[in-house]
Nucleic acid binder design. Structure first.
Length: 472
DNA sequence: CGGCGTACG
DNA sequence: CGTA
DNA sequence: GCCG
């Protein structure tokens, strides 16, 4: 088992690795392709890990570019999130390390203007921040401190601000908005007056927040695991990966293995390419199958962190078989990199009424698929130096029986906050229970059928809300 | 002062 | 605990 | 932290 080996064809052979906790990345610009290849081979021959692609597993960025500002501009242009915890180094650190045959301690003379750029980095973060971003930071910070109430309150505040058709320019307009109380209004006032929030900036500059944010960005790592690693003194991915007592589960292994790919946004063209792949597979198995793109892309977003599809067939009860066949087919195509399959059946004993048929299968799966560059219209959006010709993408497939299609569509179209609010509304205001499978009226003690999303909104006594209006 | 979405592995 |  |  090699949970730590990077998913690059030119990955350094494992037997030669001497320094597990150091991962180099050589910046090609100013260095040139051939010199970069030469230095890469040199370092690998001395037992160093050299990454071909810049991602958050990298611990030491080495550049020959002395123009600090343009280097940092380039680094920030990428999607790397842990710049504050990376060493960004001069070539002198590299040559010293090669001479010694081991990574030498990082000294001030090796650093490329770290202090100035570090400040600049957090500055661009905050100044480029919108009000809603500020509230997301507050929410996240409270989540990391295990304060679920305040976390949720700030998430709602962020959603309310996001849903406004205008940009907030004075306090007056926000005065009678829901979910904005005393604390939130103070934050808004501060940002409107000074362009920044002391509280938010304190959080952003907090080491614990930065590290927990980094750790939880790995698929399979949540706040509790991140906190556990932080308490044990671990501060970087390499700390975690080099710690022999840490046992990563299957999800976390995939999370690290494909980190660079799945932490990068998925474009609409990539989502469509995946749609073609799934469409081909589904219809080869069941000609009259129905495939629907859902999730953020159904809400009209241009980018997402994954791609969600609903797969079903008009023949009731055949849908679970369809999903397993699709997974098998993807496996045989060699593009299935990770699969967590959930074959679920409705547990009617838990429900207040027992009027449902017994055969109520409702299968879903969380996948990581290999998407080829050639399959994407306009090509994959990758870094210049990434010559693999493919990327990994998170894909979710859910396969309801057709008679529950509307509930599944509503439940998987999101956003997360919209789903929460809708379910809370159903429970609190209508005494109804809503989930991905059904809508139950507690007063009438009966399930309410629906063939379209409009039916469900009607049952709830709500105006229909278009998918692109559900971002909050 | 209690509740905060719901369901699965 | 993690995922959606 | 905000709301019923």
């Amino acid at each position: 088992m090699q949970p730590y080996s990077p998913d690059k064809p030119s990955a350094p052979r494992r037997e030669g690795v001497k320094f597990e906790d150091v991962r180099l990345y050589l910046v090609e610009r100013k260095m040139g392709r051939s010199r970069r290849s030469f230095l890469t081979e040199l370092a690998r021959s001395k037992g160093f890990i050299v990454e071909d692609v810049l991602s958050d597993v990298v611990t030491h960025v080495v550049s020959e570019d002395s123009q600090a500002s343009s280097l940092w501009a380039w680094l920030k242009g990428g999607s790397v999130k842990n710049l504050p915890v990376m060493h960004v180094l001069d070539i002198s650190w590299f040559t010293d390390s090669m001479r010694e045959g081991k990574p030498v301690a990082v000294e001030t003379r090796h650093l490329i203007q770290v202090c100035i750029c570090f400040l600049n980095y957090s500055f661009t973060c905050t100044s480029g921040f919108s009000l809603q971003d500020a509230f997301e930071v507050l929410a996240e910070s409270h989540e990391f401190n295990d304060m679920e109430g305040p976390c949720l309150a700030f998430r709602r505040a962020a959603s309310v601000l996001k849903s406004l058709p205008w940009t907030v320019q004075n306090l007056r307009v926000t005065e009678d908005l829901p979910c904005l109380g005393e604390h939130s209004m103070c934050v808004i006032e501060e940002i409107l007056q000074h362009g920044r929030s002391f509280e938010v900036e304190k959080i952003l500059s907090d080491e614990r927040y930065q590290i927990l944010k980094l750790f939880t960005s790995v698929f399979g790592v949540g706040p509790k695991t991140a906190e556990k690693w932080y308490r044990r003194g671990l501060r970087s991915f390499s700390d975690v990966l080099a710690e022999p007592s840490i046992h990563l589960n299957r999800m976390q292994q995939s999370g690290f293995l494909h980190y660079g790919d799945i932490s990068r946004a998925v474009s609409k063209a990539e989502a469509q390419a995946l749609g073609n792949i799934i469409d081909e597979a589904v219809h080869a198995i069941t000609p009259d199958a129905i495939l629907t793109l859902t999730g953020g892309f159904r809400r009209g977003k241009d980018f997402g962190h994954d791609v969600d599809f609903i797969v079903t067939t008009p023949q009731l009860g055949k849908e679970e078989r369809l999903l397993t066949s699709v997974i098998d087919r993807l496996k045989h195509q060699g593009i299935l990199l990770y699969c967590e399959y959930q074959a679920s059946t409705f547990d009617e004993s838990k429900l207040p009424s027992h009027r449902f048929e017994a055969m109520d299968h409702f299968a879903k799966c969380f996948l990581i698929l290999r998407l080829e560059d050639s399959q994407v219209d306009g090509g994959l959006q990758t870094a210049e130096e990434d010559r693999r010709g493919w990327r990994a993408v998170r894909v979710d497939l859910v396969s309801p029986p057709v008679d529950r299609y509307a509930f599944t569509l509503l439940g998987w179209s999101g956003s997360r906050q919209f789903e929460r609010d809708l379910r809370r509304f159903a429970r609190m205001e209508r005494r109804m229970l809503l989930d991905n499978h059904a809508l139950y009226d507690k007063t009438k003690k009966e399930f309410l059928a629906a063939t379209t999303e409009k039916d469900i909104f009607a049952h709830l006594g709500l105006e229909y809300i278009e998918p692109w209006q559900r971002n909050a």
